[in-house]
Design a protein around this nucleic acid. Sequence first.
DNA 1: CGATTAAGTCTTGAAATAAGACTGAGTCAA
DNA 2: TTGACTCAGTCTTATTTCAAGACTTAATCG
Lengths: 157, 157
Amino acid sequence: MRWEDLSRENCSLARTLAVIGDRWTLLVLREAFLKVRRFDDFQANLGIARQVLTERLAHLVDEGVLAKTAYQDRPPRFEYRLTEKGLGLYPAVLALVHWGDAHYAGRKGPPLLHRHKACGHDFRSVLTCSACGEAVDPRAVETHPGPGAARRRVGGS
Amino acid sequence: MRWEDLSRENCSLARTLAVIGDRWTLLVLREAFLKVRRFDDFQANLGIARQVLTERLAHLVDEGVLAKTAYQDRPPRFEYRLTEKGLGLYPAVLALVHWGDAHYAGRKGPPLLHRHKACGHDFRSVLTCSACGEAVDPRAVETHPGPGAARRRVGGS
DNA sequence: CGATTAAGTCTTGAAATAAGACTGAGTCAA
DNA sequence: TTGACTCAGTCTTATTTCAAGACTTAATCG
């Protein structure tokens, strides 16, 4: 299979990765979550090849994860901001960051902490069940086909 | 910057992506979470080039995300299983899947549902604060440097 | 005028990926 | 005991992507 066929897979992870699974894309989003908005700032912070950055930003805009808007007209200058859809990736990004904190932070601890403004404390993200509100252990999850599951061939010859 | 320098960045997301940010790696892990264990099954399910699969599995084993063990000796046959560290990626994977469900599921709904065995209901993951136990809105999070933050040059000439 | 800034595009060489043939060790069935 | 098959890879070749940095365009600043 080639990467560009991913979005046609009937799998939500594959479709998500078709949008944000490229090399660099999640790092571009990290910068966006840290309020970086301009092409040259993304480029300088990431050290990414400019061509690649151009392509990644365009893709994220196409997918509605970032919005590109002019903040001045002459000369034209643009900024890239997270949309609501893009903001929806925050739980995933935070979970990845906290996994990194747990396994790859240096002796001194994590480089960045997250504070929950509502309660005032630094926190880690906890996977919680939308149905019962309790923390979920990965081993306590079972999967089963949903309404959009692919029809399977049954009893074929 | 080149990709292989990522793991030296003082950023937990960058270090995480150095492990699981390659093309295909998260799909390999999807299969692992769905209890796939053998080389040929990964290969057949993903349609990934065998060479790439070989390299990805070896990398995940190196990083302690998967464990490779022989399940028979003659001929030698191996299986790849998630370690505890690998299981720790579940919240991140689930968050990505649920983002895909929200934005890319077809008309009929998501292809796969997740049931919380403890309460018996299908659920979505909710980002919850480890300090206060409440659901966290992305806009209610502030970041600040942690103990492992890079020392910044101060007052340089 | 000359330097600087922002947001790219272009060029070139290096690296990664896709597709599929091939290998080797062993099993199974006739 | 030959021939088909399984598993877990390796090898080859062509295509695609990425890295690095020079170049471009339009406008402002001193």
